[in-house]
Structures are given as structure tokens and as C-alpha cells.
């Protein structure tokens, strides 16, 4: 199964592997959401949507549908 940003738990981190180029908005890339960069889930709203993440220093909230498109390699161990 693909492991994506939407699968992170609060406080967990991962490294971005790849994402669906056609679906993800260019804005996310500009904010630092690029392969190889680290992403951390800071907070999730009720129903796990939207998600508040820190991606290479940019603090942003995105909807779950978008988060599901960002595939990551989870970083093991505690935060």
C-alpha cells in the first residue's frame, strides 16, 4: 500500500518520495513540497481533514484528498 502524508499520525514525519504531478497544485511545490524534503504532521482537524503539516519549514493546511497524493517514506522512531 502506498504510504502518504494522510497516513501520518500527529507528530510523525516522513520524506517525500513522489507525488502525482497532474493532480498536485504547483503552489505546493513552491512552498517546498518537493521529493526529498521532510514533512511533519502537526495537527489534524476532526475527521482527519484538513491536515496541518510542516513541509521543509512551510506551515500549511491541506485537504485530505491532496495529502493522499503525496507519497512518503516514513521516518521511524520518535519525533
Amino acid at each position: 500500500m502506498r504510504f502518504t502524508v494522510a497516513h501520518l499520525k500527529r507528530g510523525e514525519r516522513g520524506i517525500i518520495k513522489s507525488f502525482d504531478q497532474d493532480i498536485l497544485p504547483i503552489k505546493l511545490l513552491e512552498l517546498g513540497c518537493l521529493p526529498g524534503n521532510e514533512v511533519e504532521l502537526i495537527q489534524e482537524a476532526p475527521l482527519r481533514d484538513p491536515l496541518y503539516i510542516n513541509v521543509s519549514g512551510s506551515h500549511i493546511a491541506i485537504r485530505r484528498t491532496v495529502a493522499l497524493q503525496i507519497e512518503i517514506e516514513p521516518i521511524q522512531g520518535h519525533e
Binding site: H59, I60, A61
Partner: peptide, 10 residues
């Protein structure tokens, strides 16, 4: 086609 995104400033 637009995406919801909000920056959470300090």
C-alpha cells in the same frame, strides 16, 4: 480545479 491551501503563519 483549484486547491484549498492555507498557510499557517507564525
Amino acid at each position: 480545479r483549484r486547491f484549498f491551501m492555507v498557510e499557517m503563519p507564525n
